[in-house]
């Protein structure tokens, strides 16, 4: 689109700026609110400039929590969320790499059936199978544990499917060259397939980390012990206090903190996988 039409340029910029405002404004309000005192947001007029209570708010929410909302210190919830998100992301990638490897590179009976079984589970998100899954997890005694938080969410077809598609694009001749070089299946997987999948792994890690981090319904069901609460749950609990006014400054401070890890992951990994994408050109 190498056109020089000032009016069109202006229009497209306006649309883009409007889009940015729609997305960024709530985030801005959240950041502002987290720097204000507890009553500033109840006065009817939403303040748009930072207030003086930043350090105080963050210190309190991180290390002592808001006792009136029954919320433990956010630092603990952040750790829980981090453990859960990492376990889900890493677990999913590890399992789907291996199952995609099996489906693409080995001829075994019922291979197609195995693939389709995995594929069909794509149609069943967590919410649909949540009751039976809860029953299984409860019977296994995994309630209120990191295993209970992460293992049921590790099983999913999306990543397997993506890796399968990627493995299918790896030239057969590369596999054959490895065979001629004397590499067995595991050496081929480790020395060739895994390094080639680096960029896909990075991209999936970003997506799955955020997926794990943002889980709400599942942690709500399987945890009753505040020691295993995740941060996304925590926000909801604090905003929904009974017989009291929510402390919006605290809620917003939690929101800002909850946003940080995904942002960090995106920023760090993006550089890595964009580089990978550019390198794999040609």
């Amino acid at each position: 689109m190498v056109e020089n039409r000032p009016l069109l340029n202006l229009l497209s910029h306006l649309v883009l700026i409007a889009g940015v405002i729609v997305v960024a404004f709530p985030v801005y309000v959240a950041i502002i609110a987290s720097t204000r005192g507890p009553t500033d947001f109840l006065s009817g007029l939403v303040p748009l400039l930072p207030g003086p209570h930043t350090l105080e708010n963050y210190h309190r929410i991180l290390f002592s929590g808001v006792s009136t909302s029954g919320a433990p210190p956010i630092a603990l919830m952040m750790t829980n969320s981090l453990v859960m998100a990492l376990a889900i992301a890493i677990g999913k990638i590890a399992i789907s790499l291996i199952s995609a490897f099996a489906i693409v590179y080995f001829r075994f009976p019922f291979r197609q059936l195995a693939f389709w079984t995995i594929f069909i589970t794509l149609m069943l998100p967590v919410e649909v199978r949540i009751v039976p899954t809860f029953k299984v997890v409860a019977d296994l005694g995994l309630l209120n544990s990191y295993a209970g938080l992460s293992i049921p969410l590790i099983a999913s077809a999306t990543a397997t499917f993506l890796f399968r598609q990627f493995f299918l694009t790896v030239p057969d001749e590369l596999t054959e060259a490895a065979r001629v070089d004397g590499a067995g299946p595991l050496k081929f997987f480790r020395d060739i397939l895994l390094p080639l999948s680096r960029t896909n792994i990075a991209a999936l890690f970003v997506i799955l980390f955020i997926y794990g981090w943002n889980q709400y319904l599942w942690p709500l069901l399987v945890t009753t012990d505040p020691g295993y609460y995740t941060v996304v749950m925590g926000i909801k609990r604090m905003a929904e206090v009974a017989d009291a006014v929510p402390q919006w400054n605290m809620v917003m401070a939690t929101v800002v903190l909850a946003m940080l890890p995904p942002v960090v992951v995106v920023v760090v990994m993006q550089r890595f996988f964009v580089k990978g994408l550019v390198e794999s050109e040609k």
């Binding site: 030239p171 001749e173 590369l174 054959e176 060259a177 060739i192 390094p195 080639l196 680096r198 794999s280």
Partner: peptide, 9 residues
């Protein structure tokens, strides 16, 4: 091989 099949990484 015809397309050399070098390991790209």
């Amino acid at each position: 091989f015809q397309n050399y099949a070098l390991y790209p990484h």
